[in-house]
Design a protein around this nucleic acid. Structure first.
Length: 390
DNA sequence: TCTGGGGTCCTAGGACCC
DNA sequence: TCTGGGGTCCTAGGACCC
């Protein structure tokens, strides 16, 4: 009998800050931005802050109104990644198969670990205790016969929670839940469900696959059919290699000056190239993304080339050309982004690269330039600004 | 109170080839 | 003289998640 745990670190970013700064403990901590930061949103709020109604994705300005005396922080991803690694290492001691879903959560396949750690509930207690002892953090756990259900129930008794659905009880459990608990049905789908009068999962459970497909489409209909039976585990199956890479920036104020916009594109491109060169990937498909300030509308453009860009300049030239084609001159730019998709392992691509050696030299040169840029973030930007000043 | 940044997957339509 | 289907690759946009 297969069994899984979904383990989720409680209020992760905020908890790390409280761990690193004892003076923050017991106080409302809000990670995501400082009170003056326009257009920032809350990334994580500590439980002390949630009491005031502050939650993830809320604009910082709104959080400040609800909780003016809170401790506001921009946060440090490098630190969180480090701490995440510590927690994942603890997970790995309890299961040979740990599937990390994001920086703060993972599935553990605990099938057949009974002899080592006892029955699932006992293992979960040991796991939680070990995480707390080794890292100072608390996790909430969901235990079920499949990943999908484990994921749904790990959030049912936060923080420091443990919730289990016994084998055989999956369907009955889901039917007792409102449709809002369906993971994978977000705001738009909830609206749609409400419109049709579906309140609980039991309402959906009554429908045939064909009926669900006619309302929600084949793919999503099938997903819902399985979800309300507590069986949508396949949502987490399959290979999970990296498929795309992107960088984007929202500006505190809309940008109107074309030179400034293109300078920002240059910076975003540098960041993307830096990450690309530190990855094993290469890509022939580039994407740009523009969000206009006046109506928050977002447009994108994509182009696939015969070859992957061999050098930074080539990537930038391609992105710039695509941007100029798409951008409606005169409109204020709120967000600018660049991305690479259809990522392939670099070696495979290099086979068809006639100028492999030349490119390799250029790549090495650029790697060092970008490394300098990484240490002195404004060096490259200054260069471009200087070039641009008449 | 306007609404981040990094991803994944799905849909729909067009181009092109057989 | 009008018009098949299937497959593949590509683009734009949107829903969703943490």
């Amino acid at each position: 009998m297969a069994f899984f745990i979904h383990a989720d670190i409680d209020a992760f970013f905020a908890s790390v800050e409280q761990l690193d700064h004892p003076e923050y403990r017991g106080k409302p901590v809000i990670v995501g931005g400082l009170p003056g930061d326009r257009r920032s949103v809350v990334s994580t709020a500590s439980y002390e802050a949630r009491v005031y109604g502050v939650h993830s994705a809320m604009p910082i300005v709104q959080a400040v109104k609800l909780c003016p005396h809170g401790i506001y922080l921009r946060g440090s991803m490098a630190r969180y990644r480090e701490k995440s690694g510590e927690v994942m290492a603890v997970f790995a001691a309890f299961s040979p198969e740990v599937q990390q879903l994001s920086v703060d959560e993972a599935f553990l396949d605990i099938t057949g670990t009974e002899k080592l750690f006892g029955p699932p509930r006992e293992l979960a207690y040991k796991l939680k205790a070990a995480v707390r002892e080794k890292t100072g953090l608390t996790v909430s756990a969901g235990l079920a016969s499949n990943k999908y259900l484990a994921k749904i129930i790990s959030g049912m008794s936060k923080p420091d929670g443990l919730f289990m659905v016994e084998a055989g009880g999956e369907e009955a459990f889901m039917c007792s839940q409102p449709v809002t608990k369906i993971w994978g049905a977000g705001a738009k789908t909830q609206e749609e469900l409400k419109k049709h009068g579906f309140k609980s999962c039991a309402d959906l459970h009554r429908l045939s696959p064909a009926m669900l497909a006619s309302i929600f489409g084949n793919s999503f209909g099938e997903f819902l059919y399985r979800a309300v039976r507590g069986q949508a585990a396949s949502a987490f199956d399959g290979e999970r290699g990296t498929k795309s890479m992107s960088a984007e920036r929202t500006f505190p104020y809309d940008l109107f000056d074309e030179f400034e916009i293109e300078t920002q594109l240059f910076n975003i491109c540098s960041e993307l190239m830096f990450r690309l060169l530190h990855s094993p990937y290469q890509s022939r498909t580039i994407t740009i993304k523009i969000r206009y300030g006046e109506d928050f509308s977002t447009v994108g453009a994509r182009e696939t080339f015969q070859t992957a860009p061999a050098a930074f300049n080539e990537l930038y030239d391609r992105l710039l050309a695509l941007f100029r084609r798409k951008y409606e001159t005169g409109r204020g730019v709120r967000l600018l982004g660049a991305g690479l998709s259809g990522l392939e392992e670099r070696e495979a691509l290099r086979q068809g690269d006639l100028f492999g050696e030349e490119s390799e030299k250029e790549r090495r040169l650029e790697k060092s330039i970008l490394a300098i840029n990484d240490k002195f973030p404004n060096a490259v930007q200054r260069g471009r600004n200087w070039l641009g000043e008449k």
